[in-house]
Nucleic acid binder design. Structure first.
Lengths: 352, 352
DNA sequence: ATGTTTGATGTGTGCGCACACACATTTGTT
DNA sequence: AACAAATGTGTGTGCGCACACATCAAACAT
């Protein structure tokens, strides 16, 4: 079925009428090969579609590949923890290949922390970067620097299409927003009002959230939505404040039948609904983090839209490995599936 | 972060005061080691948590692992094709590890074909088996034989819990049924009638389908369903016959608002609905095969419940590899996530 | 002319392991 | 007792490759 005899360097050497050293030089572009021999070896390589034995290569090579993972610091149970776990998993899977992964954390609410972190990286010792793309401008300038040094880098979470990233790993946020709308409108009529809660901590709203809103709105337009969307800004830690706001808006607009939050903090509204004992509001949020899972189980969150964070982390490292070690070209767009998680199926999520 | 100096066999040997040969014999249980040295080496192995360098091992070893994959033959675009693709992907990923995978196909509508296929396998040359569990009794007796020979085997698709399979890879069919019900009842009231179509080809109904029905019924009970379920048997290839039956039942019971099919053939009803231009029936089925995808896109299938067939195939081979090569113990239950696919998200499915 | 740099090429060693084999020791047999 | 068989133990080789090094010829400078 598979294998058979693989072609080795010695075979190539014999075929091309040179020594293994020459073949080696050609393969690794080390120079010091005459033009005649170079083409001769290249011809043979192409002819037999030579694929190096990675196992032997990895055993012989002393080269250690340094991959830097730059993501926000996270508290236990938060979204980025799952991405981080995916990275860990990949490290375990590829530990034999002389892989060294260093995780660097910045404060996602503090752009300066990201900036100083970037400044402190000694890029001379870095072979690849996995980058959480939260701060648009800084990511762009950093990308330019990586371009200049020819260090491959992969974006995770949300994409910045203009840049020369080797790959983007994540979901299509626009579609993610459409799906939220689609789910909501299974439960409510197009005349019902909808609450959209934003969770503010700093002034900035993430690109993700913006794109999701766009997708959501696109869906509303497509079904000729007749209701009204109300927006509230909640605080990540001030529950009393949030409850006041939510009480007010629900009282003022009794026609609100659904709520949506475009980041992973749906539990803030979910816990409110639980406290007020209201199951008449269809709440849809994003990302299966612990607090959301609990509320999904109890029925206060209708559905969560998940983007397989562990797989994101895993694939990020895997792609960099394949690029660095295999030297292989890979597709530069790895849109991951968008999962719809409900009470029944969330438990099985992310086996990988 | 990771790596550092790994402990090698020579290190172990030095620590235990023996030669590498002795350590090797202990590691591989080849015998010919005195009790004293055995325990001494074992102690050291445990102490340092020795983890063999799989890269070196694989390079040195000439042993080829033969894995046999036994699944139904499939036409292009059918369900088992996706499982097969997952197997292929795994073969590619692990090709360096002296892996030989042989796929054997049987006729899923002909038990005898499965039986004769099993009989012809020369088990002496087989190191692991991935087995599609369609024919209960034959799978059981074959499993006994594999037990006797201590050949690890993995079930794929549906489980037979009594057996000593190394692992089962697939979804929880019961939950799969519940989810179908859950989705339907977002669109219909609990007074509406439901059509359940079975696709007959042989008399047998799959365990999968039975379990899904159980889960579906459990959900009906839980919500105190007031409507009526009608069952029809359709033919896989006789469209005219199917249309007559469907016309009749829909005419006779206009209160039917939804339909469910517990295998991958939802397209049979979906195509009927398309032909009759009816979008008022909520149709839910299983598995993202080509024909279903088309109807999902066009809106004649409301949702598909997917069981990540490619991942099933991939993980099946991967688990066997890890067991054979790593010799590692692995969890014996690998329930995969159940995906809810709708028009918006099906396109991204199964990137892996 | 002789030394010196430079480029082109081949050879040798070791990565960590599996496994064959040589050798040493004990046990069993008549 | 002698000698075979079984059991214990260490050494050596090679898997396919990367990379340091040795070799050798040609080009250049003094």
């Amino acid at each position: 079925m598979s294998n058979c005899k693989e072609i080795r360097i010695v075979d190539i050497a014999k075929m091309a009428g040179v020594s293994v050293g020459t073949v080696d030089r050609v393969i690794h572009n080390r120079g010091r090969v005459s033009a005649a021999n170079y083409t001769r070896v290249m011809t043979v390589l192409k002819e037999v579609d030579y694929r190096p034995n990675m196992v032997a290569r990895s055993l012989a090579s002393k080269k250690v590949y340094h991959i830097v993972v730059i993501i926000p610091a996270y508290a236990p149970g938060e979204y980025w923890e799952y991405i981080s776990r995916g990275v860990d998993r990949a490290v375990e899977d590829f530990r034999q290949y002389h892989l060294s992964v260093t995780k660097l954390y910045f404060d996602q609410f503090n752009e300066a922390s990201f900036e100083s972190l970037l400044r402190d990286i000694k890029l001379d010792e870095v072979d690849g970067v996995l980058l959480g793309t939260l701060f648009y401008d800084l990511v762009c300038s950093f990308s330019k620097e990586l371009d200049a040094r020819k260090i491959p880098y992969v974006y995770v979470d949300s994409d910045i299409p203009g840049e020369r990233r080797m790959a983007f790993i994540g979901t299509d946020s626009l579609v993610g927003g459409q799906i939220a709308a689609r789910i909501l409108f299974r439960n409510i009529t197009k005349e019902a009002d909808i609450l959209m809660a934003r969770i503010v901590h700093t002034g900035a709203e993430s690109t993700q959230a913006k794109n999701r809103l766009s997708g959501f709105n696109a869906y509303l337009t497509s079904i000729d939505y007749k209701g009204c969307m109300y927006r509230v800004d909640l605080d990540l830690s001030d529950d009393r404040h949030n409850y006041e706001i939510l009480d007010a808006i629900f009282h003022e607009h009794p026609n609100i039948k659904a709520a949506v939050i475009f980041n992973s903090k749906a539990y803030i509204v979910g816990e409110y609904l639980k406290n007020r004992n209201r199951k008449d509001i269809s709440l849809v949020g994003y990302d299966l983090i612990e607090k959301n899972a609990q509320l999904l189980e109890e029925g206060y969150i209708e559905a969560l839209i998940d983007q397989r964070p562990r797989m994101q982390g895993y694939m990020g490292v895997k792609l960099l490995c394949e690029r660095l070690i295999l030297n292989g070209e890979i597709g530069n767009n790895n849109l991951l599936p968008i999962d719809i998680l409900i009470k029944e199926n969330y438990k099985f999520s992310e086996t990988y």
